[in-house]
Design a protein around this nucleic acid. Structure first.
Length: 676
DNA sequence: TGGACCTTCAT
DNA sequence: TGAAGGTCC
């Protein structure tokens, strides 16, 4: 389903405007809507997006116009023409597709004489506002977040909803019916609806409940695997039904109150919760500065890591049959509810990358398909962090022990017992490592290892050895590549041994019993799936080339609009994908050496790919060690090392010349190379 | 006070 | 793993 939804308002003095709703499905603290209401007067009611429509209607808007089109820009342009609007308002998004599309939209609208204004409604600060003392973007989270918390000006206070929106005449304006689910999705959506209540009234309730409940003990309880103590706000934030600035301000007020009361634990709770808000900010920041972070590791040497392409291992992980109870419980919960505690997300994804050594983008894609709060930017940040692709990542060579983590996050085994009924009668002493339990204990608990609960899919010691071997191989390949480049073979190993990128398994629909009904890959052609292999998109919505909004949260899983389809920036970025493959007969398996990588921390930090504003000059790593020097493509023969960021780099001069222009102009070159 | 040893926690 | 913060002598 591809839907672009728009609300149109037209106004006083004949002035008409369109408000384009994307992931900002609210009337409160919506700068674009507020600007439209100030500027003009009429409005558009709509058909679905029930909650947004209802609220707009209460304000006087007539109808929310929705359009389904493979080209949302063209559809929006047509809508503007149909309505005779003179103004277009929308709020910023920061993923690559949206930035490119929005820039293109601005250009086209402006050419038609339409006034276009865009606003920040999704973040405390726009990404380009937060820089270090040298004016460069931050490369690590904590310095970034500390700067956010000490900015010379506070984030804008949340806006009240407009008092009134005058409805325009929409008789000449056709609107498509919204379709929120098909038959294949209905079953799981019903399940989701029980656990989830869309709409910002419910978002407000959830926020109040959290502020007046679990927040005060957040610092203590956040370690527990149980979701009961988490805010559960992320889906609302993702769809913009809840303003992050509202969350921020209300938590700060709480923090102030508790601080004055001398309740330091509660104050710390606020600090920690706000840090998770900061991570959400940082995910957008990272996507903006590194547009391929959802599909390429930010540390270029990771491309040499020999990921193990093993679909059956992938399947065991998805089904919660790895033999490690905490991991399996998490995967079963994810499957059943579309939700996972933040800590458990780290546990299962860390296991995926380090123990199973599966390509992290497979895991990211599965998260995308199953998480209720799937969010491209946040998920990219999470998986890059886990796979050692960020300067402040966990080190890749350290495997977290699921048994120890089990007793840390689930000390009494309640979480495991809830999601793994076959282990329910196992004493706590053995619940996180049943393979060590005496036979008599297992028998008494009704556990037959290898029968009704699996033995560990791989021993941790074995995994550790295999991981070290993989890292050694990665560094050898990386060194060989460097040597080749130094001796004048500019392309290193790339040209001679190029292989296709790792394909996402194409039989994901396999066992219906285990797979989410809403994941309906059978609607895709093989070609489409291949095209999609590098990005976390699935569901019927893939039939579109680019998607827009839409979203009745409870029903619309494919309203995850801004998923890049397949970015083709420059030919050289293609080379970056893989170095070598030992693919099997099917051609889809084999050992691939993907972009990711990592090495000792001190070295890794210096190899972080340059960001937008760093890229036009040499870049000095924090530790002053080996420093890659990057030059714009025109001046460099081997800039492919940092292919992920090349596309936006040459726009620097444009920004320098047009400091007042919206930073989206940064994406000018990208827009030309994007296939839409 | 200060340094050896510990625990905790990381995006 | 290793940095940071605590405790103990």
């Amino acid at each position: 389903m591809s839907v672009s939804s728009s609300s149109m308002c037209g106004g006083d003095a004949g002035m008409k405007c369109v408000v384009w709703f994307r992931r900002d499905l609210r009337v409160e603290d919506n700068p674009a809507l507020a600007a439209a209401a100030r500027t003009a007067g009429e409005v558009v009611p709509a058909q679905s997006l029930k909650h947004l429509e209802a609220s707009l209607h209460r304000l006087g808007a007539a109808k929310l116009v929705t359009r389904r089109s493979p080209d949302s820009v063209a559809a929006l342009l047509q809508l503007v023409r149909d309505t005779g609007a003179t103004h277009l308002f929308f709020n910023h998004l920061y993923d690559p597709i949206s930035l490119v599309r929005d820039h293109r939209l601005k250009e086209m609208m402006t050419a038609e004489g339409i006034v276009v204004q865009s606003f920040n409604a999704d973040l405390l600060y726009d990404p380009w506002e937060v820089n270090d003392d040298e004016g460069q973007p931050f490369n690590m989270f904590m310095p970034f977040w500390n700067r956010c918390l000490s900015m010379p000006y506070d984030p804008p206070a949340p806006l009240l909803p407009p008092k009134r929106i005058n409805s325009g005449d929409l008789s000449m304006c056709p609107s498509d019916d919204l379709i929120f689910e098909d038959e294949s999705e209905r079953g799981s959506n019903a399940l989701l609806a029980r656990a989830w209540s869309p709409g910002w009234q419910n978002a407000d309730k959830a926020l109040s409940a959290f502020l007046n409940g679990p927040l005060i003990d957040y610092s203590v309880n956040r370690k527990k695997a149980d979701s009961a103590n988490t805010s559960l706000l992320s889906p609302y934030l993702h769809f913009g039904e809840l303003s992050v600035r509202k969350v921020f301000h209300l938590v700060r007020v709480k923090q102030l109150v508790w601080s004055n009361e001398g309740n330091h634990a509660a104050e710390e709770s606020c600090t920690l919760f706000l840090r998770s808000v900061g991570l959400r900010e940082y995910s957008r920041y990272l996507c903006f500065n590194h547009p391929c972070s959802h599909e390429k590791p930010l540390l270029a040497h990771l491309r040499f890591f020999p990921w193990v392409v093993n679909e059956s291992t992938f399947k065991f992980w998805r089904q919660g049959r790895t033999g490690y109870p905490l991991v399996d419980a998490g995967m079963r919960e994810l499957w059943a509810t579309g939700w996972l505690h933040d800590r458990i997300r780290v546990v299962v994804s860390s296991f995926f990358v380090k123990v199973l050594q599966l390509p992290w983008r497979w895991g990211m894609k599965y998260f995308w398909d199953t998480l209720l709060d799937a969010d491209l930017e946040s998920d990219a940040l999470g998986w890059q962090y886990i796979s050692g692709s960020l300067p402040d990542s966990r080190e890749l060579d350290h495997i977290d022990n699921p048994q120890l983590e089990g007793y840390k996050f689930d000390p009494h085994g309640e979480y495991v017992r809830r999601w793994l009924p076959e282990l329910a009668r196992l004493p706590t002493e053995w619940i996180h490592h049943p393979w060590d339990a005496p036979a008599s204990v297992l028998q008494a608990a009704g556990v037959e290892l290898g029968s009704n609960y699996p033995l560990p899919i791989v021993e941790l010691d074995t995994a550790q050895v295999r991981l070290q071997e993989a890292l050694s191989e990665m560094w050898q390949l990386e060194a060989a590549s460097r040597a080749a480049m130094d001796t004048g073979m500019e392309e290193g190993l790339g040209d001679s041994s190029e292989v296709p990128p790792i394909e996402f398994p194409q039989d994901l629909q396999m066992e219906v019993h285990w797979e989410p009904a809403r994941v309906a890959p059978n609607v895709l052609t093989t070609a489409q799936r291949r095209q999609d292999q590098m990005v976390p998109t699935m569901t019927a919505s893939l039939n579109r080339v680019e998607t827009e909004i839409s979203a009745d949260l409870g029903n619309s899983v494919d309203s995850r609009a801004e998923v890049p389809f397949r970015m083709h920036f420059e030919p050289r970025t293609e080379r970056e994908e893989v170095i070598q493959s030992t693919g099997n007969a099917a051609g889809t398996n084999g050992i691939h050496h993907h972009n990711n990588f990592q090495q000792p921390q001190h070295r890794m930090r210096n190899i972080f790919a340059p960001s937008v504003s760093e890229a036009s000059s040499s870049w000095t790593g924090r530790d002053g060690g080996v420093v890659p020097v990057w030059s714009p493509p025109a001046a460099s023969g081997h800039s492919e090392t940092y292919g992920a960021d090349e596309a936006d780099v040459s726009s620097r001069s444009y920004l320098d010349m047009h400091p007042q222009s919206h930073r989206i102009m940064n994406w000018h070159q990208l827009s030309q190379s994007l296939i839409v």
